[in-house]
Nucleic acid binder design. Structure first.
Lengths: 342, 342
DNA sequence: TAAAAAAATGCAAGCGCTTGCATGGATGAT
DNA sequence: ATCATCCATGCAAGCGCTTGCATTTTTTTA
């Protein structure tokens, strides 16, 4: 080993020495700077390859004041929606030369705040995130706003912070799903909604209500339940509804997972799906098509939203403009066997 | 605006000037260095807070030659197994002060190679990865080995590169699942296996075969199919088996998704589950419990494996030792309704 | 063939933080 | 009061790369 065994990292200085030129020339050559002759570029690249040189992104980031890193803050990776979103995010990031550093809040606002701090420390070039269900104060994003670091939000967004917003038309989702049941002949439709404090769920509820209104169907107060959409909430709702003298003949579940649980709970009660009851959920999981009967759903395009979010984000990073563009993505109605024509 | 509007970033120099002390003292104070008096520490921290100072991790990383970043390379985020693994990875990484940069190979070796290059450029402190199904040459990990940067592998691992290996006992999984069917009274058990080139699937197959042998059951050649486990593969297998004069009365699916598809295809043929046929899959997805009948499975602990991988990795990072420890995680047999006592 | 223009390269500072070593001041022992 | 000890802080170099400007080399033009 050499006396100064420097952890073995090859630097541009090593290349420079090898060729008897200056480090600046090496740097420029490797970056294909126009003012460097083809001859030296080739020589430099050849030596770099021979020596096994690999750019030190840390040093590069520091001097360029640009990390080429995009931070991602999402609630959790447990749901397919977010996993797909992350997948989309990572793919377009990679295609654009960005790395992705990721973190989950687990729906904790405190974690969210903490993570913005970390992302700031990491000096990410941009942030894409989906707020927790409880986030109402978004001051923790001010650091980025102040520094003109773009923040793209998707699904659960806040218009209080500038930047791209990628949302699905949740009102439309609720409306379309409900109307689907109505068209099937359902007269007594119930809705297990999410917390109203969340825009997403509020809009879905609105869509639900308006669809009923539009078709002159009554909205029974007991038929509109708001909850955290946990497994227990779904079971409770089913118990409540199915013990009613007048059971619902259609259910709109505000989320994919609650829909699954509702369907399973209902079946456990011996109720025939979809003959006695139609179900549709707002949000689709792959297993919706494997259950019996397969579960109709309005699909939320997680993958596409993730892709769109970074695409917009990168646009902001490049064009300097941290403008607030609103993209509404279409939703897709997946009709399966859990909803039934009467 | 000040004449030199420096992007607004507060540095330790700003704090130093403010307090008329040297930047070194500020640095040490913020890092709770023992040689700094409590008095100055407090002053420094107070000013830091007031100014909204946030450590520049890039600069810190460069000078410390440590990034506190862990790189993750996984096949894809589509399967719950990997999503959960990533979730576990990120959580323990965060708890230990590490950031996670993530990338998917989509089962492409070329992508895998490319990603190791990126991770190297990013100077990650450690790598955790799950190889693609096709990876046989692992030379692209040599860079890390040479630099003593630990590489932890989970699930699909290669013993050719040193470092922690977190695997599930796949032989056991195959054996246990098969034995379960045997105990239920199945006599003609088929197995849709994965590609044999993959250790994981080879071991599962071995477990399957040995269980049969142990219980003196014949292995019909047509009952052992090897494939890529795509949806089509699963459907083809079902078609083949169900057209046989002597159908199988039990099926062991090598993966969660293929099990789901097999079950669904079989049901579509009007075959009664589990009366006429029992199914169990090696790998569990949440939806296994929602399908009818719910699908028995051997659970592969993705979340735990992810956690274990980083835990081991961090140990390596700290203790300098990049030793090769082999951890076998237990598997869990989830008995549900798709397997039936005859 | 000299002067001017263009092309290629080098110099050196700087990105923000860390850290070994030197220094100054306060405390304690004699 | 004196010198050895600590304790607290400062100095300055360095991490590896980028980049504005200066300098050198080559090419072009008259």
């Amino acid at each position: 080993m050499s006396p100064k065994e420097k952890k073995g990292e090859i630097t541009i200085n090593d290349i420079a020495k090898e060729l008897n030129i200056s480090p600046s020339t090496v740097s420029r050559a490797l970056n294909d700077n126009a003012k460097i002759s083809e001859a030296t570029k080739n020589k430099v690249k050849a030596v770099a390859r021979d020596l096994g040189y690999e750019l030190n992104l840390v040093a590069s980031s520091l001097s360029k004041n640009k990390t080429n890193v995009i931070g991602v803050i999402i609630p959790h990776l447990g749901s397919q929606f977010f996993a797909k979103a992350l997948s989309g995010i990572q793919e377009v990031a990679r295609d654009n030369g960005y790395n992705v550093i990721i973190s989950q809040t687990n729906e904790s606002v405190q974690q969210e705040v903490e993570m913005t701090r970390v992302m700031n420390s990491a000096r990410v070039d941009g942030l894409v995130c989906c707020l927790t269900m409880e986030t109402d104060n978004v001051d923790h994003f001010n650091v980025f706003v102040k520094k003109s670091i773009p923040v793209a939000m998707f699904d659960r967004v806040s218009y209080a912070v500038p930047g791209p917003k990628i949302v699905v038309d949740n009102y439309e989702a609720g409306y379309v799903a409900t109307e689907h049941l109505i068209n099937l002949g359902c007269k007594r439709i119930a809705h297990l909604a999410g917390v109203v404090s969340s825009k997403v769920f509020e809009e879905r509820s609105e869509g639900f209500k308006d669809a009923l209104k539009k078709h002159s169907l009554p909205l029974l107060s007991q038929f509109l339940l708001s909850s955290d959409l946990t497994e227990q909430d779904a079971r409770d709702a089913v118990r409540l509804w199915m013990n009613l003298p007048q059971r619902p003949d259609g259910i709109v579940a505000a989320s994919a997972s609650s829909g699954l649980i509702i369907a399973s709970a209902v079946k456990a009660l011996g109720i025939k799906l979809p003959e006695e009851l139609s179900i549709i959920s707002l949000g689709n999981e792959r297993c919706n098509e494997f259950v019996t009967p397969s579960l109709s759903a309005v699909d939320m395009p997680g993958y596409e939203m993730g892709k769109a979010a970074v695409t917009q984000l990168i646009k902001c990073i490049n064009d300097g403009v941290s403008d607030s563009s609103i993209t509404l993505k279409p939703i897709q109605l997946l009709i399966r066997n859990s909803s039934f024509k009467h």
